[in-house]
Design a protein around this nucleic acid. Structure first.
Length: 569
RNA sequence: CGGAAUGUGGCGCAGCCUGGUAGCGCACUUGUUCGGGGUACAAGUGGUCGGAGGUUCAAAUCCUCUCAUUCCGACCA
């Protein structure tokens, strides 16, 4: 490709509304343009990268025997009503009607479609296990699209689904897919981790997420210092503390704490540490109109995912309104505590062993000090419902936890029979009886990987792609080509030679000054750069530089081609 | 969904308070210049100022409504 005929579309200035490095660089490097909130056009440079990621994913899926299919993006409501998700899915499901008034949606995922297809096509256990996948656009009407293609509404995803006659068979395929994912992320050249994950709205049992590590990641991941335990913070269990049963040493007292509504204000007002304060959150209960109190240590945070799983708590989690709290408890939010509280009280493991603690007095502008469980207050149940924090014991019993940020780029689930049961997808087993199919599902955010790769690979000049996903492999930058026939001739010759060898090469044949060309080539992140100049030709050399290196090396003209071929491998 | 901010050539912005000929930088076109790190000079192309309504002799500017985008929040007990 020659830059004179290519939509380079690089920008010298930063777009004003791009916050994240990858978003900014994708716009500046001419990879994407926004069409509407969360909707992007992929320009040639961006699409080249996207296709490369897609291709690697495809190759590894094919390598483990997954078969590629393509399902429709527009899906009939009937399928979603069968699985129950027409009601459950919520506002992220973009619904619409056709001219006959029939309901449809844009597919945010494809469990329903694949399950309906498979129940018709697969009749026997002999056809199992089977894995099907597609690389396709998904649409999720995100409440807040942001960060460019990182959290877009329309995005490219590889989704695979496996079908089995037994859980053992699913386990086996799950392991194979896990290994395929490992290969994919290795080939992409990204610093990633597989972590234990929650199954979220898709449902099911066993689950792992694949995260690209980056400080800008939206997820927090907990790692053990001593073992290979790694889990999403929303899933990581906070172990019960091993401390002895609490002993009361103080008597309970009511103290005035005017306007001390937050833990911070209470700590300051009473000069106590947040770890000695009991935080009482009031959430909506599972039974309509009921409230539930959740108690945590003041320095801990509620884990929404965990608490939603408690049978008394309404899912999705909803905080009680100030009016509800006032009406039911008789005290304003900020001064609520468990003493004399007449709603169910769920206490976190750590808060259950507090002694002599501070909590709200259920009375405006007052707190209690020296409070002790059993003597002064009772609770309904002890339940792990807090986020783990740095330094907590690792759930596998080995070492403690550290926390890093990650970008979720892959997620694999053992779905079990959640969809196949609802949609009556059966096969005949060996003994001639119908059994419900067991399913697994395996997603990769293809477009998100492009952004995540940039988050992890950029510097002041632009993107520093991993070799396998760079938009071009080699850039040829001729100095003063328009005036120097020798330079032009050499540049053309090398360009043709590389093209014929199947190398993706970009020849910058614009009538631009060197600085402009260097800046653009670095911005879009071409890994290998060859500079051809009069000076070099006189010395019989071309200059080579790798995008990630500061060193420029002069290479004998005759050896340039073979050197490049060696480096590209 | 709640809060805040911003919409002016392709991009980044000024002008608005105090109404009166729409401006700057980048990019783009042409010419000259420069020629190993976003060169310099000159001449140009391109905008009914997000949209609708209103006030006024006159609206980018004031008022009302609306649309869009971005950021923050959705943990306050």
């Amino acid at each position: 490709m020659k830059t004179s005929q290519y939509l380079l579309a690089t920008l010298r200035e930063d777009p004003s509304d791009a916050e994240l490095a990858s978003h900014r660089l994708m716009l500046r490097a001419g990879m994407i343009r926004m069409q509407a909130s969360g909707l992007y056009t992929w320009l040639p440079t961006g699409l080249r990268v996207l296709r490369k990621v897609e291709q690697i994913v495809r190759e590894e899926m094919n390598a483990v025997g997954a078969q590629e299919i393509l399902m429709p993006m527009v899906q009939a409501a009937e399928l979603w009503q069968e699985s129950g998700r027409w009601q459950e899915y919520g506002d992220e499901l973009l619904r619409m009607q056709d001219r006959h008034g029939r309901d449809f949606c844009l597919g945010p995922t494809h469990e329903e479609v694949i399950t309906s297809m498979i129940r018709d096509e697969i009749r026997s256990y002999k056809q199992l296990p089977a894995v099907y996948y597609q690389v396709q656009g998904k649409f999720r009407d995100e409440r807040r699209p942001r960060f460019g293609v990182m959290r877009a509404r329309e995005f490219l995803m590889k989704d695979a689904y496996s079908f089995h006659a037994s859980d053992e068979c699913l386990d086996k395929t799950y392991q194979i897919m896990y290994q395929a994912y490992v290969k994919i992320f290795e080939r992409l050249g990204l610093d990633y981790r597989a972590v234990i994950a929650d199954t979220g709205s898709i449902g099911g049992s066993n689950s792992h997420e694949f995260h690209v590590l980056a400080d800008s990641g939206e997820d927090a991941i907990a790692f053990s210092t001593e073992s290979n335990y790694a889990a999403n913070v929303e899933k990581a269990e906070a172990l019960a503390p091993s401390d002895d049963a609490p002993v009361a040493t103080q008597t309970m007292q009511t103290v005035s704490t005017p306007n001390a509504r937050s833990i911070e204000a209470v700590c300051e007002s009473l000069n106590v540490d947040a770890s000695k304060v009991l935080k009482t959150l009031i959430v909506k209960g599972q039974q309509d109109g009921t409230l539930v109190a959740v108690c945590l240590r003041g320095d801990h945070q509620l884990n929404e995912i965990k608490i939603e799983k408690h049978p008394l708590v309404f899912a999705p989690l909803a905080m009680a309104s100030d009016e509800d709290i006032n009406r039911t408890i008789g005290a304003p939010a900020g001064f609520v505590g468990p003493v004399g509280l007449e709603v169910p009280i769920i206490v976190d493991r750590d808060s259950a062993i507090l002694n002599d603690f501070v909590c709200g007095a259920n009375q405006d502008n007052h707190h209690l000090t020296g409070v002790n469980w059993q003597r002064d207050a009772s609770y309904t149940e002890i339940f792990d419902c807090r986020n783990i924090v740095e330094g907590d014991a690792s759930p596998d019993g080995k070492g403690s936890l550290t926390i890093k940020r990650g970008i979720e780029v892959g997620h694999i689930f053992q779905l079990g029979t959640k969809y196949s049961k609802a949609m009556k997808a059966n096969v005949l087993s060996e003994n001639g009886k119908a059994v419900t199919l067991t399913m697994g599902c395996y997603g990769i955010g293809v477009s998100r990987i492009v952004a995540a790769a940039i988050e992890q690979n950029h510097d002041d000049y632009g993107i520093t792609w991993p070799e396998n996903i760079a938009p071009f492999q080699v850039a040829i930058v001729p100095m003063n080509m328009k005036r120097s026939p020798r330079v032009a001739e050499q540049a053309q010759a090398l360009y043709q030679q590389l093209l014929q060898a199947g190398i993706e090469v970009l020849l910058d044949d614009r009538k631009e000054r060197p600085g402009v060309m260097f800046a653009d080539i670095e911005l879009i992140g071409v890994p290998h750069r060859i500079v051809i100049s009069e000076r070099g030709i006189d010395a019989g050399t071309f200059e080579y530089k790798h995008r990630r290196s500061n060193d420029k090396v002069d290479i004998e003209m005759d050896n340039v081609f073979s050197t490049l071929m060696n480096k590209i491998g």
